[in-house]
Design a protein around this nucleic acid. Structure first.
Length: 412
DNA sequence: TCTGGGGTCCTAGGACCC
DNA sequence: TCTGGGGTCCTAGGACCC
């Protein structure tokens, strides 16, 4: 074996996933334009659609009203997320039989590392073909497979081969492959960056590669230019890293009609608080940071965030902060289209964080309180507290719950 | 009758500390 | 009578992806 073994990374993507599951679960939908997402006549977008629907110009993320205009004969279905997750698990189970190094990146996508398995499985393209056949036979679903020397190229290869694709980017042909891809298809180039590049007269991958790092940084900012520099050079820009990252969790809802009745909006907010608190506890997380999002009638969007000194443990507590944040961003008269609430900087609930271990202001106070409590248990109703605590509490020191409330506490 | 809901990452600026 | 520089935490907004 050579000292620098070439990596063989597979990227697997389920074609038109939600729509395919619907068609498989209900054979009468086979061959029909199936559109999964919001119901026509309501606010929302297309989450996924079958290839039959795409022929009418429908695509995911398109407003449902527009989709309906283009394809009124389509079959419109709601999103059944639980079902898709179930089917997804089944597919991931099959993928696991090909490599223990699997990284699921969304409900319908995963990477597999098959480096050094040629001896066992044969050439990668052969393995890809078998994998496609295997998934099709066991689940009835079609996957596209991209193979490359890193995750980024494998992912691009999948997209280039869709639908029902199988494409391998060979080590020596990386630049040729990249040059064959329109700029707009590069993962990480969205509407804004594409527009910016067009303004700069950059319209191809090859052209983009010609720019020196510094020049590009000047035009697009450091982060974006470093990312694109690597991408067009055939290196993995590292977007799909497995490093632990910050987590967040949120619930939001778009009203059927813009509204400005504070009572109704706050009721919705409370419901969202309930949902998100429940999910956080269910999933074993804790957080001190609350994030509110408000979208107004004209689609302008504002956010407000607050980090508390302690973990938030109840819907009521979250709701109180949420209302406060809402009051800070909303004048009470501008019609609101969307409202959302969430937690960020999530920490696993069973992990004690450093602040707790080494004593921040809050936990120090908590320890003092606990100590005071212990002493009071021993000494009966003698009121005592720590001098520094009184200073911290400012002009309104906490009253002791027992004993004479007017008697000044004893310092120690 | 435009434009969902759930995420991640980056940037820029302010507060605060040493 | 002037005011550095680094580090960290926090916030708001923006870009992007599925």
């Amino acid at each position: 074996m050579s000292q620098e073994e070439t990596r063989i990374v597979f990227h697997v993507d389920l074609d038109a996933f939600y729509a395919s599951v619907e068609q498989r679960d209900n054979p009468s939908l086979a061959g029909k334009p199936v559109i999964v997402g919001a119901a026509p006549g309501h606010r929302g977008v297309v989450s996924a659609c079958s290839y039959e629907a795409r022929r009418f110009g429908v695509h995911s993320a398109m407003p449902i009203s527009q989709a309906y205009r283009r394809c009124p004969q389509g079959v419109y279905l709601p999103v059944r997320m639980e079902r898709y997750i179930e089917v997804s698990r089944q597919v991931m189970g099959i993928l696991q039989q090909y490599s223990p190094y699997i990284q699921q990146i969304s409900v319908d996508e995963a990477f597999l590392d098959l480096s050094g398995t040629e001896r066992l499985f044969g050439p990668p393209v052969e393995t890809g073909r078998r994998l496609k056949k295997d998934v099709k036979e066991k689940t009835g679903l079609v996957i596209s497979v991209g193979i490359g020397p890193n995750k980024y190229l494998a992912k691009l290869a999948t997209n280039a081969g869709k639908p029902d694709g199988l494409l391998m980017v060979e080590e020596g042909k990386v630049e040729d492959f990249l040059d064959s891809i329109p700029l707009s298809q590069l993962w990480g180039i969205g509407e804004r960056t594409l527009r910016r590049l067009t303004e700069l007269n950059i319209t191809s991958v090859r052209q983009l590669r010609g720019f020196a790092d510094g020049e590009l940084a000047h035009l697009l900012g450091r982060g974006a230019s470093a990312f694109l520099g690597k991408a067009v050079g055939g290196q993995d820009p590292g977007i799909f890293s497995e490093e632990p990252h910050s987590r967040s969790l949120s619930s939001e809802t778009t009203f059927e009609r813009d509204r400005k009745d504070r009572g109704g909006i706050e009721r919705t907010l409370l419901e969202l608080c309930q949902q998100v608190t429940f999910r956080m506890i269910e999933d074993g997380w804790k957080s001190k940071t609350v994030a509110l999002k408000v979208r107004f009638h004209d689609f302008t969007t504002v956010s407000a965030q607050r980090t508390l000194k302690h973990w938030i443990s109840s819907t009521e507590e979250l709701d109180e902060v949420a209302r406060d944040l809402l009051a800070s961003r909303w004048n009470g008269t501008t019609p609101i289209r969307l409202i959302g609430i969430g937690f960020s900087n999530l920490i696993q609930a069973d992990v004690q964080d450093q602040l707790e271990l080494f004593g921040d202001e809050f936990s120090r106070r908590k320890k003092v309180e606990e100590a005071v409590l212990r002493i009071r248990k021993k000494m009966g109703s003698v009121s005592l507290t720590k001098a520094s605590l009184l200073e911290n509490e400012g002009r309104s020191p906490k009253r002791h719950r027992e004993g004479d409330p007017n008697r000044p506490p004893t310092s120690f």
